[in-house]
C-alpha cells in the first residue's frame, strides 16, 4: 500500500466514523443539547456534512453540553485581537509567496529557432 492509498483510506475511515457520529447525534444527541432543535427536523440533513468533517469537535461539544460543563461567559469572549496577527502575518505570507512564485518562473528566449531533437516517428510529422 503506497502513501496515497494510506491517505485515502484514512479519509474513508474518517468519513465512516463521522457517519456513525452523525447518526447518533442527529437522532437523539441534538435534542439533548439544543432546545431550538427540538421538533425541528428539516434542517438536520444540512448538518450532516459538517459532522462528517469535524466529528471530533462535535463529540467534544456534545460531551461538554450534555454534562453541563459549558461555561456561559465563554460564549462572549470575543477574539477581535486575533485579527492583529492576521493583519501582520497574512500580508507577509502573500508577498513572500508572490515573490517566490515570480522568481522561479522559467521563460524561454523568443529568438531561438526550434531544433528537432529526433527524427520524425511518422511520415506526417
Amino acid at each position: 500500500m503506497d502513501q496515497a492509498e494510506i491517505i485515502l483510506m484514512i479519509v474513508r475511515i474518517w468519513g465512516v466514523i463521522g457517519a456513525v457520529v452523525a447518526l447518533g447525534f442527529l437522532t437523539f444527541g441534538i435534542d439533548q443539547v439544543d432546545e431550538d432543535a427540538q421538533d425541528a427536523y428539516v434542517f438536520r440533513p444540512l448538518i450532516v456534512p459538517g459532522i462528517l468533517l469535524i466529528w471530533p469537535i462535535v463529540i467534544w461539544r456534545w460531551f461538554v453540553l450534555a454534562t453541563g460543563r459549558d461555561h456561559w461567559p465563554n460564549r462572549y469572549h470575543t477574539r477581535r485581537r486575533n485579527h492583529h496577527w492576521v493583519g501582520m502575518l497574512m500580508p507577509i505570507a502573500i508577498i513572500v509567496i508572490l515573490a517566490t512564485g515570480w522568481s522561479v518562473r522559467q521563460t524561454w528566449p523568443a529568438h531561438i529557432a526550434p531544433v528537432q531533437l529526433s527524427a520524425p516517428q511518422e511520415p506526417t510529422q
Partner: peptide
C-alpha cells in the same frame, strides 16, 4: 446551528 452549538468564539 453550528454557531450556537460550537459557541461564537470557537
Amino acid at each position: 446551528f453550528w454557531l450556537k452549538f460550537l459557541t461564537p468564539p470557537v
